[in-house]
C-alpha cells in the first residue's frame, strides 16, 4: 500500500507541468485549428478527435479525461454532436472551469444560424439532432462567426494578452475575408451542381455554394445505408442525374463506392475537416482543398 503511494508520487515528480499559459481542449480539429490561428504560441492546444474520426462516436477515453482536467478553455461544436461523450468527460474531469455557463466552456453552435432543425424529434428518424444539423464548420462564414467568440473568450480568460488576441483576430479576419472572396469566385461555376451526399454532413457547404443535394445515402442519419435505400437512390439518380457523390474522409467508403459502380458517378472524398487529407493542414487549406476537389467534378467531361 505504502509502496503504491510512493509510486504515484514518483509519477508526478517525473511529469512536470508545462509552462504554457492557456490550455485549450477542443472536441474537433477545426476548432483546434481556429484556436491556433487566434491564440498564438503561448498556448497548448489539444484536439480530442482527428480528421479521420467520426465525432459522433468517440468514447470518453482516459487520455481525454486527463486532458480536460487541465483545460482552461473547452471549444466544442455542441448541438448534441458530442452528446455521447462530452457530458461524460465533463463529469469525470473534475474541472469546474470548463463547465457550461463558465467562460471556459464554448459551444460553437450557439453562435451561428442553425439549419435543418427538425420539426419532429423521434429516434425512429435516426440520429436526429434536436438543435439542428451540427456540421456547422463546412461553411467558412460560420468559422468567422465563431472566431469572434473564441477571441473574446481568450481575452476574458487571459486579460494580460487581450490586445494580442484582438490583433490576431483582426489579422485572421483580414486573411479569411480575402480567402473567402477568392473561394467564392472559384466556386461560381459550382452553383446549382447536383450532388449526392453520404451523411447529412454538408448542408452548410451546400447552402454556402448553392449546390443541389439530390439524395443522401443514409436513409436515416447515423444509420448505415441499407441496400434497399441505395437501390432507391440509384433509381432516383437515373431520373435526375447528379454530378458527384460526396463523402467525408472518416466515412466508410463501401456505400458510396457501390453507388458509384452502379451509376458511373464519381466519388469525391472531401477532407471534411482539418487533417481530413494531407493537404488540409489548416483551415485555409481545408477550404482550398474542398473547392479544388469539387471543381474537379464541376464539368460533366471531368474537367
Amino acid at each position: 500500500m505504502q509502496r503504491f503511494v510512493y509510486l504515484i508520487l514518483l509519477l508526478f515528480a517525473v511529469t512536470p507541468a508545462a509552462g504554457a499559459n492557456l490550455r485549450i481542449f477542443t472536441c474537433e480539429p477545426e476548432w483546434a485549428a481556429l484556436a491556433t490561428e487566434l491564440a498564438g504560441e503561448n498556448t497548448n492546444i489539444f484536439s480530442a478527435t482527428t480528421g479521420l474520426q467520426n465525432p459522433h462516436k468517440v468514447t470518453a477515453r482516459p487520455s481525454l479525461i486527463a486532458k480536460m482536467r487541465r483545460a482552461d478553455l473547452v471549444i466544442c461544436t455542441g448541438a448534441d454532436l458530442e452528446a455521447g461523450w462530452l457530458p461524460l468527460l465533463r463529469r469525470k474531469a473534475n474541472n469546474p472551469k470548463v463547465l457550461p455557463g463558465q467562460p471556459g466552456y464554448l459551444e460553437a453552435a450557439d453562435h451561428v444560424p442553425m439549419r435543418e432543425i427538425p420539426s419532429r424529434v423521434d429516434r425512429a428518424e435516426g440520429d436526429v439532432h434536436p438543435h439542428g444539423n451540427p456540421h456547422i464548420h463546412t461553411d467558412p462564414r460560420n468559422i468567422r462567426r465563431v472566431a469572434q467568440v473564441v477571441s473574446e473568450r481568450l481575452a476574458t480568460l487571459d486579460p494580460a494578452n487581450a490586445t494580442q488576441y484582438r490583433q490576431r483576430l483582426a489579422d485572421f479576419n483580414g486573411r479569411w475575408d480575402a480567402a473567402l472572396r477568392q473561394w467564392e469566385s472559384v466556386a461560381a461555376n459550382l452553383r446549382g451542381m447536383p450532388i449526392v451526399t453520404q451523411h447529412k454532413s454538408w448542408i452548410y457547404l451546400i447552402e454556402w455554394l448553392g449546390l443541389e443535394r439530390i439524395a443522401v445515402l443514409e436513409a436515416k442519419p447515423g444509420l448505415p445505408p441499407s441496400a434497399a435505400h441505395l437501390s432507391q437512390v440509384a433509381a432516383k439518380l437515373e431520373r435526375r442525374p447528379a454530378r458527384v457523390i460526396l463523402r467525408a474522409a472518416y466515412q466508410d467508403r463501401r456505400a458510396s463506392d457501390w453507388l458509384a459502380d452502379r451509376t458511373g458517378l464519381a466519388v469525391a472524398a472531401l477532407p471534411y475537416t482539418v487533417g481530413g487529407n494531407e493537404r488540409a493542414t489548416d483551415l485555409f487549406g481545408l477550404f482550398d482543398e474542398t473547392l479544388r476537389v469539387l471543381n474537379q467534378h464541376a464539368n460533366p467531361e471531368g474537367g
Binding site: I8, T15, P62, S63, A66, K67, R69, K92
Partner: peptide, 13 residues
C-alpha cells in the same frame, strides 16, 4: 472522493 492528477497521463485515485 476522487482525485485526478494534473498530468497528461490519466491518473486517478
Amino acid at each position: 472522493a476522487r482525485w485526478l492528477a494534473p498530468t497528461d497521463t490519466f491518473v486517478e485515485i
